[in-house]
C-alpha cells in the first residue's frame, strides 16, 4: 500500500542570516514512490528545499515530515535519504568501488564485494570498479555518484541538478537509465532541474517554483505511463506538456 502523504511540507519558510528569504510558506505533499521535479529560475531556493528535506538545513518555521517523522529522525530510523549533488562529489583518493561503499562504511555495515559490483553493474560501470575518479569522464563520475546513492536502498532520492554539468547526449542517456532504476527500486524522488524536457520526461508531476522566495506556482501532472521510451520525447503530447510548463515558468518571472 503506497502512502498518500509520504513527504509532507507545510507552511515552510527558510530565511538565511542577513534577511534573505529563500522559501516562503511552501506547502507540498508527495506520494510514496512518486517522481516529482522542481523547476524554477536559478537561485530560487530549489536546492535549499532539498537541503531542508534531507535535514541538512533547519527550517526557520513550518514543518517537514517524512512518513510522519522529522528528517533527522527519519534518517536515524533507516528511512534512508540519498542526496545526489550537481557535481559527482566523489572522494578522488578512493577507487570507484570504495566510493560506492562509503555510505555503508561510515555506518560500519559490511558489504560483500559482489553486492558492490552488482550495484556498479546496474549503472554500467563494473569494469571501472578499480579505477580512480580522475580516470573517468563526467558522465561516468555521475553514474558512480548514483551507485553510491543506490547502495543504501534509499526510500527517498533527492537529486540536485545531477545532470546539469553534462552534455545533452549523456544527459538523455542518463535520464533513461535513471527511469529504469527508478522502476526497479521504486523510491520516492525529488528532482531539481533547469531543464523542462528532462523534468517532463522523468516525472509524475512537475512543480514550477516562483523566483525567491520560492512558492509553488504550478503543479502539473504528466499524463504518460511508465515505462517511458526515448521516443516519447518526439511526440506531440510531450511537446504540449513541455509547452505548458514553459508557459508557467515564463509567467513566474
Amino acid at each position: 500500500m503506497k502512502k498518500e502523504r509520504f513527504v509532507e511540507i507545510s507552511d515552510l519558510t527558510v530565511s538565511f542570516p542577513g534577511g534573505i528569504e529563500a522559501i516562503r510558506s511552501l506547502n507540498l505533499i508527495i506520494k510514496e514512490g512518486e517522481f516529482v521535479s522542481l523547476v524554477g529560475a536559478s537561485g530560487c531556493g530549489k536546492s535549499t528545499l532539498l537541503k531542508v528535506i534531507s535535514g541538512l538545513l533547519k527550517p526557520s518555521s513550518g514543518n517537514v515530515t517524512i512518513d510522519g517523522l522529522s528528517p533527522h529522525q527519519a534518517r536515524k530510523k533507516q528511512h534512508d535519504i540519498a542526496f545526489v549533488f550537481q557535481e559527482a562529489t566523489l572522494l578522488p583518493w578512493r577507487r570507484v568501488i570504495e566510493n560506492v561503499y562509503l555510505p555503508l562504511e561510515l555506518r560500519n555495515i559490511p558489504c560483500p564485494k559482489e553486492k558492490l559490483l552488482s550495484i556498479l553493474q546496474l549503472v554500467g560501470l563494473e569494469e571501472f570498479a578499480f579505477s580512480y575518479p580522475a580516470q573517468l569522464s563526467g558522465g561516468m563520475k555521475m553514474r558512480v555518484s548514483l551507485a553510491r546513492a543506490l547502495i543504501m536502498n534509499p526510500q527517498i532520492m533527492l537529486l540536485d541538478e545531477p545532470f546539469g554539468a553534462l552534455d545533452e547526449i549523456t544527459r538523455q542517456k542518463l535520464n533513461e537509465e535513471l527511469l529504469t532504476l527508478c522502476e526497479k527500486e521504486s523510491w520516492t524522488s525529488l528532482f531539481v532541474t533547469h531543464n523542462v524536457f528532462e523534468a517532463v520526461f522523468l516525472s509524475h508531476r512537475v512543480l514550477v517554483l516562483s523566483p525567491r522566495p520560492a512558492r509553488v506556482i504550478a503543479d502539473i501532472s504528466v499524463p504518460f505511463s511508465y515505462p517511458r521510451s526515448p521516443e516519447l520525447r518526439g511526440s506531440a503530447e510531450f511537446a504540449q506538456v513541455v509547452g505548458e510548463v514553459s508557459h508557467h515558468l515564463r509567467q513566474a518571472q
Binding site: 537541503k51 542526496f83 549533488f85 572522494l91 583518493w93 562509503l102 555510505p103 561510515l106 555506518r107
Partner: peptide, 29 residues
C-alpha cells in the same frame, strides 16, 4: 574541504572522527 563532501558525510551520519580520518586527512595530503 568541499562543502558538498562535508554535507554528504553529515547525511550519512559520520562521526567527527570519521570526518577527520576519511575526509579531512586524505584531503590535506
Amino acid at each position: 574541504v568541499d562543502t558538498n563532501l562535508y554535507s554528504l558525510f553529515t547525511l550519512y551520519s559520520a562521526s567527527r572522527w570519521q570526518i577527520l580520518c576519511k575526509l579531512k586527512i586524505p584531503h590535506a595530503i
